[in-house]
Design a protein around this nucleic acid. Structure first.
Length: 586
RNA sequence: GCGCUUGUAGCUCAGCUGGAUAGAGCAUCGGCCUUCUAAGCCGAGGGUCACAGGUUCGACUCCUGUCAAGCGCGCCA
């Protein structure tokens, strides 16, 4: 409909040109929008106001002219000038009713489109370090990322979802060391646990299980472990130095092979847990991409060589630097440390190179907002490698600040003090959690009050939308109990019986769905879909309260049934993109 | 200090590429169940859109500045 109006206005503009009112060269942007107020018709355009200056006339006069030049179209019942010069279009009811048939025919596919034209898009999200269970902060990224990916898929992009697994580096060494120290405790060795180690209960569980399966294979005497280790922070030392020494000691005492087994065992348990958790949350990935593989297959080295060839690498103070400041970053960055180890950033350069080499037209990274300072250096690296960095889009998700009532909840993976995504799911339910996370714009700081979210589950808006769906199902059950059959064709033939304001409003809402979906996808704003679904549910609930559907009049009854079934279909389509259940009864 | 993000009703948030009288949920108050699920509906109150300028037919929206909040500015990941 919108497109049709655009074409009509385009014709009018051409006529204006040939009449010499407008310059031949001008090609105005034609804006059509939904009228907010029904008194303003269904669609409105501000074209006359935009062109008034060019045409050297006032907007209302120009609007009159435009309307005269507008080709006739049977689906438009009235065109009006209003306010400062808006052109308001009134769509006739028959044209509006078509959407009900359209929804019936398209079913699950109603609303899908092909604006993405099959372009290959990769969405990388969550990518939490596999050093512990996901917490509620990761939940927001997971819900947002999968919603964005699924929206893009719905409008015709070829989407691949990916999780980047940081299974290399110091954090993982700290994890392996933490597990080993707990393991030693299982064996009965007395070793003070480092303040910088991972203290979560899950570390003990992992250690317990490994111990059970290995007898005392990994056991080493405590004296050997602690010999000449610099003091930890509580004892007046440096916690970083302390933990690094412990890592080295772990590697030495266990030897490479055992250390690697231990490391791998810890990693596997945690990663499997994360996979389970996400799957239960309705989030799946096509690819789990390993950082370690990138390091071991030479990709990181190759990336560094390419940067070097491009002339962006230099040595300083024993380290290797990437001259990112020449490409917009605020300073240069180390890629190989003095001790010979590559940095996380070096892996990331290789990773982004790899992404583009895989042939994606667009690469979307969903990061926590605390990583925003990281964006310029990644872009710099892509440019230095001769890649087109406009293919990279970074979407930032603000961290959710947790409250319990009025008190802030401390969040730290290291201390083990955090609310896990799993806890949240079991407390508020997966549907509510997803809905809640995506309800807000991603850049918006989010106050997540656990007390509120957990104690008032009935007030959660997700139920409101689901309830609308369940109500339609209930009506259909009632129909059955009354011994009536639904007559689809009779209903379609009598759509003109739908004359109530509530019915027309609901129909208008239904016809908006494809536009909303497209906009939400292209702007990466799933919250727009949520808001739409709430509005649609409101239209339905209002209608439900105002009118009876199961009336004696067969023609009217079936027309109404067709309408509410269309509503049910759209609710289901929208919720399924967000991976939220559509219950038949509540 | 520099950079990114944010500032809209008592609270939590929407507000589409600038458009008509700034919206919703929660909370408060008042109504609606002998008819399809009251997890619902109807109504009321509640606003200097942080502040000050600017751009124009028109600004919550764009620009500049100020104030406030969160985050970032490692040879950590």
């Amino acid at each position: 409909m919108k497109q049709k109006l655009e074409t009509l206005l385009q014709h009018a503009v051409e006529s204006l040109k040939s009449e010499g009112i407008l310059d031949q060269k001008s090609s105005p942007q034609i804006n059509i929008e939904r009228a907010k107020d029904t008194r303003h018709g269904d669609f409105a355009s501000n074209l006359a106001m935009m062109l008034a200056k060019q045409a050297k006339t006032n907007p209302r006069q120009l609007a009159e002219k435009i309307i005269l030049l507008l080709p006739k179209d049977s689906s438009i019942s009235k065109v009006e000038i209003a306010g400062p010069g808006f052109i308001n279009f009134f769509i006739n009811a028959d044209a509006q009713f078509q959407v009900i048939k359209k929804i019936h025919v398209a079913g699950k596919k109603y609303g899908l489109s092909n604006v993405g034209a099959g372009k290959k898009v990769q969405v990388e999200f969550v990518s939490a370090n596999p050093t512990g269970p996901l917490h509620v902060g990761h939940g927001r990224g997971a819900a947002y990322g999968s919603a964005v990916a699924d929206l893009l898929q719905a409008v015709g992009f070829d989407v691949s979802k990916e999780y980047y697994v940081n299974d290399a580096g110091r954090q993982m060494d700290i994890l392996a060391t933490s597990v080993w120290l707990r393991y030693l405790e299982e064996c009965g060795e007395v070793v003070a646990f480092p303040s910088n180690g991972y203290r979560g209960e899950y570390i003990r569980d992992i250690a317990f299980n490994i111990h059970k399966n290995t007898e005392n294979e990994y056991r080493r005497p405590a004296e050997l472990v602690l010999e000449d280790i610099p003091a930890d922070e509580p004892q007046g030392g440096d916690k970083e130095v302390h933990i690094d020494a412990l890592i080295d000691r772990t590697k030495t005492l266990l030897g490479e092979s055992l250390y690697r087994d231990l490391f791998q065992a810890g990693l596997t348990v945690i990663l499997d847990d994360i996979k389970d958790d996400l799957e239960a949350f309705g989030v799946t990935f096509q690819e789990w991409f390993s950082e370690r593989v990138l390091m071991e297959d030479g990709s990181v080295k190759e990336a560094m060589e390419r940067l070097d060839k491009a002339g962006y690498i230099y040595q300083k103070e024993g380290a290797t630097w990437f001259a990112s400041s020449r490409l917009g970053d605020e300073k240069d960055r180390v890629v190989v440390r003095e001790n010979g180890q590559t940095t996380y950033f070096a892996s990331d350069i290789a990773y982004h190179m790899n992404k583009l080499d895989r042939g994606f037209d667009q690469v979307i990274n969903i990061w926590g907002a605390d990583h925003h300072g990281y964006i310029p250096r990644v872009r710099a690296a892509m440019q230095a490698l001769g890649a087109d960095d406009s293919k990279l889009t970074v979407l930032l998700v603000q961290f959710a600040i947790l409250y319990r009532g009025k008190e802030k909840v401390p969040m730290s993976t290291r201390s083990g003090e955090f609310v896990t995504l799993r806890q949240l799911r079991s407390e508020v339910g997966t549907d509510a959690a997803r809905f809640f996370y995506v309800m807000r714009k991603s850049e918006q700081h989010m106050d997540f009050d656990l007390k509120l979210a957990t104690s008032k589950t009935n007030e959660n808006p997700v139920f409101y939308v689901q309830y609308a769906h369940a109500r339609v199902c209930s009506v259909l059950r009632q129909l059955d109990e009354k011994g009536w059959e639904r007559d689809l064709n009779l209903g379609m033939e009598n759509l003109d019986r739908l004359t109530e304001d509530h019915e027309l409003a609901l129909i208008t809402d239904l016809s908006k769905y494809p536009e909303i979906l497209e906009k939400a996808a292209l702007k990466y704003e799933p919250h727009q879909l949520i808001h739409y679904l709430r509005d649609l549910a409101t239209s339905f609930h209002t209608y439900y309260n105002a009118h009876q559907f199961l009336v004696e009049d067969e023609a009217l009854r079936n027309a109404r049934l067709n309408l509410i079934c269309a509503a049910k279909q759209v609710l289901a389509n929208g919720l399924s993109i967000l991976n939220i259940n559509t219950p038949e009864s509540m």
